[in-house]
């Protein structure tokens, strides 16, 4: 065997194999995979979208953009895409759609659920790709005369377009605001405010407020000096001690009350009160007789007092009797 020839042949064959492997690695196999062709129409600019750009379903690359063209009749941009059916798999990881017909039926169902295609930015470079996802947007009406053998999918406005639309709406609303009227009102309000500020009563009130504020500040300072932390702590401790004493006293009082049998005392007191009340009633009933008796006693006492005075002034009267007109018998 010629070694040189062998190694030359080995070199050629190995490089050829490497070339073929690289071709397949870079996606040659995808060219032989079953495909379906989709079309969509965009009313907005497709700046950044190029042929070969990715088509993604919920972020998963499923195909690429084949062609971009302008439909002159209504100035819409037609974007033709090819989607590899192998990317859609069933539960058993086998391709879900055997042919274009099944995929078409599935696509119609998904479009009814809100599936749309939208332009999205691929990064900060401005390049765009087609995103197939479920958007809450009505999409374009179906094409009257779609290209034969091509499935149609409605487009949705890109996020940037949404932002621009929101901005336009906001600007329109801002434009409707009557700034001149607001300005006039503001001028009037400011004039009124100036007049109000110039009012002497308001100034006096403000000065009073200043004074009050100063007083409050001084009070706060005093409070701050008086109510030091140590004092507050002491007050709290005293209060706590007092409360403890009150609690102890209350406890003792309760004990004493229980020991003193207050019920029996009250009953006895009630009996005594009853007796007093009966006595009072008896005295009241005997009051007229008592008055006569007291009057007699009073006269008797007066007679005694008169006799005593007579005996004091004229002791001899005890023997000879009282002179006329000097002694009045009771």
């Amino acid at each position: 065997m010629n070694k040189k020839l062998f190694w030359s042949g080995f070199f050629i064959l190995s490089m050829l194999v490497l070339f073929v492997v690289m071709l397949f690695g870079f996606g040659l196999a995808a060219r032989f995979a079953p495909k379906v062709y989709l079309e969509s129409y965009f009313p907005e600019s497709v700046q950044g979208l190029a042929e070969g750009a990715a088509v993604k379903y919920k972020g998963v690359p499923v195909g690429k953009v084949d062609d971009i063209a302008i439909r002159g009749t209504d100035q819409q941009i037609r974007v033709s895409m090819s989607v590899d059916l192998d990317n859609f798999q069933g539960m058993d990881r086998r391709p879900l759609f055997a042919d274009e017909k099944k995929f078409g039926a599935w696509l119609q169902e998904e479009i009814a659920k809100g599936l749309r295609c939208r332009l999205d930015y691929a990064g900060i470079t401005g390049m765009r790709y087609i995103e197939l996802d479920y958007f809450d947007q009505p999409g374009l009406p179906p094409e009257a005369d779609p290209t034969k053998g091509v499935l149609l999918i409605p487009s949705a406005a890109s996020p940037f377009k949404d932002i621009a639309r929101s901005l336009n709406t906001s600007l329109e609303r801002i434009a409707r605001i009557r700034f001149e009227e607001i300005s006039d009102n503001l001028v009037h309000s400011l004039a009124d405010l100036n007049r109000l500020l110039a009012n002497p009563d308001l100034r006096a009130a403000i000065e009073s407020l200043h004074g009050m504020s100063a007083n409050l500040e001084a009070s706060s300072l005093v409070m701050k000096n008086v109510l030091t932390e140590s004092r507050l702590t002491k007050i709290a401790e005293d209060t706590e001690t007092s409360l403890a004493q009150i609690r102890s006293l209350t406890q003792r009082l309760n004990d004493e009350l229980q020991r003193s049998n207050i019920g029996a005392g009250i009953a006895a007191f009630q009996q005594a009160a009853e007796a007093v009340r009966n006595t009072a009633l008896f005295v009241e009933s005997r009051q007229s007789g008592l008055d006569v008796l007291l009057e007699r006693v009073d006269r008797a006492l007066e007679a005694v007092r008169s006799a005593a005075e007579t005996w004091e002034n004229d002791p001899s009267s005890v023997v000879r009797g009282r002179r006329d007109g000097e002694f009045v018998a009771p």
Binding site: F19, M22, L23, F24, G25, F26, G27, L28, R31, G52, P61
Partner: peptide, 11 residues
């Protein structure tokens, strides 16, 4: 690399 390169680029 595999995503961005294509057989066309290599060819």
């Amino acid at each position: 690399t595999l995503q961005v390169l294509s057989p066309q680029v290599l060819t």
